[in-house]
Amino acid sequence: MTELPRKTDKKLGLVIDLDICVGCHACVVNCKEWNTGGYGAALSDQNPYGDDPSGTWLNRIHTYEAGEGADTRVVHFPKSCLHCDDAPCVTVCPTGASYKRADDGIVLVDESMCIGCGLCAWACPYGAREMDLAEGVMKKCTLCVDRIYNEAFEEVDRVPACVRTCPANARHFGDLADPTSDVSQMVAARGGIDLMPEQGTKPVNKYLPPRKGTPIGEALPAAHRPGGEDDLSATGFLGWVDDMLSRFG
């Protein structure tokens, strides 16, 4: 049913720390690895070994540069479905294949009902939905529904594949409706933000902005700053050598 639930008891989602992500793409690869054999159709590739390879991915990392001059920052930016409270991809679906679960807020596609019209991908501002060109159905992040409730797994593995695999611990999973959860506290402490709040989608996933860094100049030891070597003055024996060499210089 494409009507959104008025309220979901839980809001399961991700918190992504942009200060920590190193852009290694491990979450991208593990997402594809897990989900190509998990929920629904496999994630196909087109022309994978040719000149122009492409394929279906549910999680992608972009890299941006922000700021000017010495304050410029490079930020690696993982992006997957944000499981929005007001998910526009769900309401535009003509068949009822897209839905948001009332109990945990996860946005899913019932692939057996999807006609592959692509309208949900047009409605999503985040690029979270990709049509699988081999299957002709829409694919998206499932928040690894087939892992997080899977009692055959050990507790530590009952998190989305991207979270489990992140070597830098930049991705966190939890209930964002519960103010006492780790993820909610992280968001509160670091001022977690919504992407494109002006689109009115009310995303559940939050991003933790990079902390204020030290400007490039100040982060360096004195000798390594631009023009720094001229200011050095050695003392003792090395001072004498420096003095002697300067006389012949």
Binding site: Y64, E65, A66, G67, R73, D194, L195, P209
Partner: peptide, 20 residues
């Protein structure tokens, strides 16, 4: 607003997720 990085200044794309 898309990246939420506005407070750092102007934002430029450095790398796409994939080359193709």
């Amino acid at each position: 607003s898309a990246t939420g990085l506005g407070p750092l200044g102007l934002v430029r794309l450095l790398d796409r997720p994939h080359t193709s």
